[in-house]
């Protein structure tokens, strides 16, 4: 069997799955967002749905909220994950516990984390009760709004809770594979601790960090259940808005939902493109 045929046969099942399900999903979504559905006689594509999306103020507010959630969560999680990985690389009391908790956290679904954050940070949650116990507040309403709030603090907290271990585990694996010798070389050539990190370790773990954080960005940009549990009602995060439109009793709203899904994909791609370019330029120079 020739190598070409072998490669083709090995890839065929995966490619079929991805093309039919993933590309098919995107393609049909695109068609329907253009009001193009030959099955029910809609054969003249148009941009009506996009016009509706782009002329609605709610869409822009939702977009800004979602962008804020994704950028803040990704940046915070990445920074904290680097710190955590640096910490876990060293021998110290409690390292084994944190290692285990990191892996344990990977197994906990986002939805459970979101509910946990809700019970901790809502105005009648555990922290509000502690504040009341210490006499800092007297009624639940006095506690600052950390969930359902316009700054999406609860959502971001949840993402940081879940994604620090995710990025951290990947970075830790990278660091352990690299060893400490590169940094030793840098130190012996005159780099101080910070310089050895900034000019040597960070560029070396950068590919892993970049791919992990891109995954986090995309996930936080398109996840539904977390903003549905913890997010404000208006403006809602983009995925929540799209799902609402999609399940609207008014079937007319469906193309609008599809248009929004396509816009989410495009915006996310654009953001990832910018993010990769900016971070490449700044880290590895």
């Amino acid at each position: 069997m020739s190598d070409r045929l072998k490669i083709f046969l090995l890839l065929a099942p995966a490619l079929t799955a991805i093309i039919v399900l993933f590309m098919g999903g995107l393609g049909i979504g695109l068609a329907r967002s253009l009001n193009y559905m030959p099955v029910i006689g809609l054969v003249d594509p148009n941009f009506d749905a996009y016009v509706t999306v782009f002329t609605s103020q709610e869409f822009y507010l939702s977009f800004l909220l979602t962008l804020h959630i994704s950028v803040t969560s990704t940046v915070l999680s990445s920074i904290l994950a680097i710190g955590a990985a640096l910490l876990l690389r060293r021998q110290f009391i409690g390292r084994a516990i944190i290692n285990f908790l990191f892996q344990l956290n990977l197994t906990v679904p986002h939805l459970v984390g979101a509910i946990g954050i809700l019970y901790l940070f809502s105005q009648s949650g555990s922290f509000a009760r502690l504040a009341a116990e210490w006499g800092m507040i007297s009624r639940p309403g006095d506690f600052p709004a950390l969930v359902f709030d316009p700054y999406a603090i609860g959502i971001i907290l949840q993402y940081v809770w879940k994604e620090v271990p995710f990025i951290g585990v990947i970075l830790l694996a990278n660091m352990q594979a690299l060893g400490e010798d590169y940094e030793s070389v840098a130190r012996s050539l005159g780099a101080n601790r910070w310089q050895a990190f900034r000019h040597v370790l960070l560029p070396l773990i950068f590919p892993g960090l970049l791919s992990a954080s891109v995954m986090v960005f995309a996930f936080t940009f398109g996840a539904y259940e977390i903003p549905a549990i913890l997010g404000p009602n208006y403006p809602a995060a983009l995925p929540v808005l799209a799902y609402r439109k999609y399940t609207d009793v008014d079937l007319e709203a469906r193309p609008e939902a599809m248009a929004m899904a396509i816009v989410i994909a495009l915006l996310s791609a654009l953001m990832i493109f910018l993010y990769v370019r900016i971070s490449r330029r700044n880290i590895r120079s």
């Binding site: 010798d181 590169y182 030793s184 070389v185 840098a186 012996s188 050539l189 005159g190 780099a191 101080n192 310089q195 000019h199 040597v200 560029p203 070396l204 950068f206 590895r284």
Partner: peptide, 26 residues
């Protein structure tokens, strides 16, 4: 004191010139 490691450990993401200039840059 500068130590040269057995497997050289040149920084893979830097050019040869940048590798050599590393200590001065620091």
């Amino acid at each position: 004191v500068v130590m040269v490691f057995q497997n050289y450990l040149l920084f893979p993401y830097m050019s040869v010139a940048d590798n050599i200039g590393f200590g001065l840059k620091m």
